[in-house]
Simulated assay, not measured.
Amino acid sequence: MANQELIASYALDPAIVVIHEYRKRETRQIIGFFDEDPPEEAVTCLGAYDVRRFDESDIVEPRRMASIAAVVFRQQSTVPIKVKRDLEKFAESLLWRDCRVFVELLPIEPGSKTPDFDSLVYQVMEERRLPVSGLKPEKLTTYTASAEEIRDMTPMVHVFRLPDTWSDVAAYLRDFPPGESPSNELSVTVRGRDDSIIVPSPEEKILLERAFHDCHRVKLIENSGGLSGVRTYKAFADNRYEYVGNRTRYEYFAKIGDRDLISKEYLSYRDIALEHIPFHLGPRLRLDRCVLGTQLGIIVSDYVSGAE
């Protein structure tokens, strides 16, 4: 989902309020080619990034993953099944952290006898229920994105066959950069309606660490079930960057649930609801805190008592 580009800090003057400083979000500048050296054309086209070879140690340690913009998996003619194994092992965790994942399939020349190894990638997408673009949707039951949906549905696995289309990869990363990386220092507490402790799933925990990346701690208290089929929470967060000196926990309204349901609700709220709900009843959607994983998603808005 889209991210707010800038966070403003304010200087109060007896007469005026002036925006005097902007703190840009931390950008991810590393692109890794898994288990191979990046081709020269890729290094040239992706010159704005630090393009390097990756091995397993680069994409399993959370602190190292925080700087990764994208990982490229290229299918090899000598061991075509390796890309399937690599995606099974790493794709899910990378997507949870909003890293972009690109898969280059073996090109098939017209009239050649080269086997079609697409099925290996289709199989991973189906078994792991990974969102994907670039594959034929009629062959999949998992979510596939149209070109128009890619912006709002990131992160997902992007599959391409044409060799060395690195300028397209560069353009995509420029237009749809990854958001903030998860905060490993965030303390997360989730309570049920009966005050019981709820242990978040691994994906939920990482999504919360992304949504509240700039906070010390966040406590979620479950509300009664909503009408959309997703769980709703009142969230109390301690922000690391408290510009106005407020010591009270900031209150948010959060929804956590199935990725498709969250995506549809996010788009409906952003594109339709805000135009028809009175201002005082419409909580502001916090775009920088709305995130998607592979099977789950989170919507966060400011908490407004009596909001629709």
Rank of each mutant, 00 (worst) to 15 (best):
D13Y: 12
D260L: 13
G47M: 02
V169D: 06
H280D: 15
A11C: 15
R193S: 05
L267P: 00
R161L: 00
R247H: 13
R52C: 09
D302R: 07
N3A: 12
P14W: 13
E203L: 15
K136M: 13
V300T: 05
N239R: 12
D35W: 01
A42C: 04
E203W: 08
A237M: 10
T27R: 10
S183M: 02
F236G: 01
V121W: 02
E21H: 11
R74M: 10
D175Q: 07
T248K: 15
A235V: 13
E61S: 07
F253P: 15
D35P: 00
L220M: 14
S146D: 14
T114Q: 13
Q4M: 14
Q76D: 12
G179N: 05
A145W: 14
Y250T: 08
S167R: 02
P80D: 07
C45A: 13
G225I: 00
Q75Y: 02
G306D: 04
P182R: 05
R53N: 10
L135K: 05
Q76M: 03
R286N: 12
R53P: 03
I19L: 11
P278N: 10
S9A: 08
D116E: 06
A307S: 12
V157M: 10
Q123Y: 05
R97Q: 09
Q75E: 12
F90C: 06
S9K: 09
R100D: 00
M125A: 09
R63P: 00
K264S: 08
K139R: 11
G245M: 11
D55P: 04
R28V: 07
F54S: 02
E40K: 06
R240A: 06
S301W: 01
Y269R: 08
